[in-house]
Nucleic acid binder design. Structure first.
Lengths: 247, 247
DNA sequence: TTCTCTTGTTGAACGTGTTCAACATATCAT
DNA sequence: ATGATATGTTGAACACGTTCAACAAGAGAA
């Protein structure tokens, strides 16, 4: 066992040019780099889909791509960052699609279901590995957490979908609650996705059931929330949110 | 690089005598074993408290205890299992205490706060490492998940506290909701603990605030839930729970 | 061309949780 | 006491994610 004392150098190139959450992406995207990156990315997703996140090794990914182990880390800061890149892509490529799909629906319940369905539809082929994103979920300091500053862009997009869905619906939301609603709906969506990821029923029917039931509940809740009787409860909820949100 | 092909033997002792979640505990607890186990356990907790879960190495634990690395694994199935053992201990040693503390309170809000306060009080010195328990939380198949079959005993104890707290309170809970309430309260407690673990405010004051606000909300909600108007919403909630609970 | 600097690539080494076959010690029937 | 079996202990080896110093390839200036 050679006790090689490694000199830990202080300055490295990559610490400077880190740009997105996705990883230590090189500053200039030359054609070669772009290509290598894409090849690594695609090998990775293929393997993730086949064997799941845990079962796939960075060595697998590198060797399938035909690069050295270290190569993967030149493009992605970590194994999980690859999954995050996928989620970014997903959000990117479906933003318009979701907003368009909404046009056909008037009722709030339908509009929300529309957004959720679309999301699940796109997530479906990748169900086996998306749970990786929730591994460190509650720690908002972790860049990969859905609550982190680093994932704000992705999150904001998603919230925007839900805002549009809620605003165009047939239900009048109380003025004090309205501005908070999109964020709440996003939390609701997050919970559903989490349930779906671990749903072991065939074709994830239980998630479908849960979605229907919970949508019904949600809409009823919103309807009722407008009643004068509900004012104190609404105040309760808003205070709660205030407390949670204050950084 | 010596390519040592290791013969993977098929039968090992430990696979047979595994008894609790806590780890592959030996069948007979001899005095020596008991002692070694405790020493490992205590070193581990000390280190966890000092440096947190991630920063503490199994090698640290072993060497601090004065045993070989493998020794730790003779008593604990994994690093996380040590934390679970701690949580078991906690539950064990405080069951009575919590039930007694409840005696002094009549109002539901006070009774619930009493249970929660006690829990946090006991968890407090160990805040730095309890998050380890939530690492694989949503996967009910993982033995260490709070939802797993393996942790049922711990969970049931906790739910029992909350059942007693709710039953002795001053608020009449609707008959259809009452049997489900303890489980719901347990989920509520889980959420609070999760928030607390990652609460970075000084002395975790935000958690205290959140507790007060949410307790107020909860009690108001229960009060209102008895109104005839609320029958359909209650039905909604119960259906929801049914869907989630069906294995 | 040749020299320099940026960009891209390599693979050995590290630190980690975990496993396991070998060894050591205790327990107990004969 | 002696062997046999159960119990406890060891440390090397494994597989994995990750890091990094060294090297190679390309682009641009001289």
């Amino acid at each position: 066992m050679t006790a090689t004392t490694k000199t830990r150098s202080t300055i490295t190139r990559n610490t400077i040019t880190r740009s997105t959450v996705t990883g230590s992406a090189p500053a200039r995207n030359t054609a070669r780099a772009e290509d290598t990156r894409r090849r690594i990315y695609e090998s990775a997703l293929e393997l993730f889909r086949e064997k799941g996140f845990e079962q796939t090794t960075m060595r697998d990914i590198a060797s399938k791509t035909g690069v050295a182990l270290g190569g993967a880390y030149y493009y992605f800061a970590s194994k999980e960052a690859i999954v995050l890149a996928f989620y970014e892509d997903l959000q990117e490529s479906t933003h318009e699609a979701i907003l368009e799909a909404l046009q056909g629906h008037k009722k709030l319940k339908d509009r929300l279901r529309c957004v959720l369905q679309k999301r699940f539809e796109l997530l479906e082929p990748n169900r086996k590995f998306c749970d990786a994103l929730f591994r460190h979920a509650p720690d908002a300091q972790d860049p990969l957490s859905p609550f982190s500053e680093a994932t704000r862009t992705i999150r904001d997009r998603s919230i925007e979908h839900l805002r549009v869905a809620a605003e165009g619906g047939d239900i009048k939301v109380p003025a004090d609650l309205a501005p908070r609603l999109p964020h709440l709906l996003w939390l609701y969506q997050l919970a559903l996705i989490l349930f779906w990821l671990y749903d072991r029923s065939p074709r994830q029917e239980r998630t479908q059931q849960l979605m229907e039931k919970s949508l019904g509940f949600l809409v009823n809740l919103l309807r009722i929330s407008a009643l004068p009787l509900m004012k104190p409860l609404r105040r309760n909820v808003l205070e709660l949110l205030e407390t949670v949100a204050s950084a």
